[in-house]
Amino acid sequence: MNKAEPLDLRLDVSAALPNEITGGEALDIAVWVFLPDQLPEKPTVVTLLNGGTYDRRYFHFDVPGRSDYSLAEYLRARGHVVILPDHLGIGASDRAKNQKLATRQVCAAANHAAVEQVYDRLRAGTLNPAFPALPSFFKVGGGHSMGGFATITQQAAHRTYEACLILGYTAHGVHLTIGGKLVSADVGQLDPDHSDYSLPDREILRATFHWDDVPEDVIAADNSLAVEVPYVLGAQATMTGIVTADAATIDVPVYINLGERDVSPDPHAEPGYYRASRDVTLHILPRSGHCQNFASTRLEMYNRIDHWVRYHAG
């Protein structure tokens, strides 16, 4: 196997979920695992969760004729093990029997169970015969947008990670750029009659997602990968204050990255939500919209994450 190609795993997480979610059947989370060619003295494992309208390909993105759009490959090439799961009900992962019952807490339990299985295989050396067992490693987890929301929820409930990356998300409440102004995206109360899935209009989101210099072919490639969002998970991710209490319990180091034009109404207030953490970094990426992975300045974020993880791993 070429180590530059990710392992493609399916991990049964049904034991971690209530029966009304599984219907008594197996439910799998689809996971890519990127294994580096060389490991640092203190191995690091970085899990990244995609945001709404995306699947795991957000962090391993291919634009024909262009390069350096994969944060996963960037980190792998620098010695990090990288885990990219698809959320429950998104991408190649299985859907719940009733996806409307798959709240943020349910999806966090599924992601935690999947990541823990990868951790167990890393310790046992059973992921790949050519890859050594890792008795210990530094565990980092994070995500973009809805993935940042899911990370905050998961860390508060399960303490999966020793450091967290919150990319393009706000612990206050999501705002979108509409007509040049920030407008709250809070949907209010959940609508029981809403369809299980929806696909927001990416054209409406363009000013939020992308800085003005993002090439048209990059945006076209991005739009071609759009996936449906489970209604409940996507709606919860927009609600004002929904993770404020959870963020306040996170006591590990936190790296916050927001684009110069992003979803937080007050970027410099974001570190204050992580009151239990003694080490919070705020990095505002210049000339970047909400989707930093497509910004012309994205390598600045990639480089900062690499060094930040190495520093905290010791």
Rank of each mutant, 00 (worst) to 15 (best):
A109C: 04
L282I: 08
I29T: 10
T238S: 08
A124H: 05
G173C: 02
A248W: 04
A171M: 10
G141I: 03
Y169Q: 12
T244K: 13
A185T: 04
Y69S: 03
S277E: 13
V254G: 09
L11T: 08
P253S: 04
H307C: 01
V252R: 14
R78K: 13
N98F: 00
L75M: 10
R57K: 04
H80L: 02
D213M: 00
F131C: 10
D246A: 14
H144S: 13
Q99E: 15
A237L: 01
D217T: 05
T53Y: 06
P265W: 04
G24D: 11
S296A: 12
H307E: 15
N2M: 06
A72V: 10
H312V: 03
S195I: 01
P253W: 05
D191V: 01
T53C: 00
A245D: 15
D217P: 01
A313I: 03
G168Y: 01
R206M: 01
N98T: 11
A220G: 03
H312K: 11
G52Q: 02
R206Y: 00
F131I: 08
D191T: 06
L127M: 05
P230R: 05
R104V: 05
F294I: 02
G147W: 08
E20G: 00
A124Q: 13
V81D: 10
D120H: 06
V229S: 12
S70E: 10
Y54N: 14
H60W: 11
V106C: 04
D12A: 07
L127I: 06
A276W: 06
Y274H: 07
Y255W: 13
Y302G: 07
R287K: 15
P6E: 08
H172R: 12
L205W: 08
P215F: 02
A133R: 09
G91R: 05
R287Y: 12
N257V: 11
D193F: 03
Q154R: 15
D266C: 02
E260Y: 03
V81W: 05
P200I: 01
E270T: 09
T249A: 08
L71R: 06
R121A: 06
G51K: 07
V115P: 01
G173F: 02
G23N: 12
V63D: 12
L205V: 03
Y274S: 02
L122G: 05
L299Y: 04
L165F: 09
K139L: 02
P40V: 07
N303M: 00
R10Q: 14
A276Y: 10
N2D: 15
R121P: 04
A110L: 09
S296G: 15
R206S: 05
T126H: 02
G51D: 10
A207T: 12
D213F: 00
E25P: 00
T208W: 00
I166W: 01
E300D: 15
W32F: 06
P43Q: 08
G148Q: 09
P215Y: 03
G289Y: 07
L258I: 07
W32N: 14
G148Y: 05
N19A: 14
G142D: 06
D186C: 05
A156Q: 11
M1R: 08
M146H: 11
P18T: 06
R278K: 15
P200Q: 08
H290V: 05
C291E: 14
I256M: 14
A237R: 00
A72N: 03
R10G: 11
L258Y: 07
V254F: 11
T244N: 04
G89W: 04
V46I: 15
G259Q: 05
G234R: 04
A220F: 03
F59V: 03
L11I: 15
P286D: 12
L282T: 11
H172D: 14
V46Y: 06
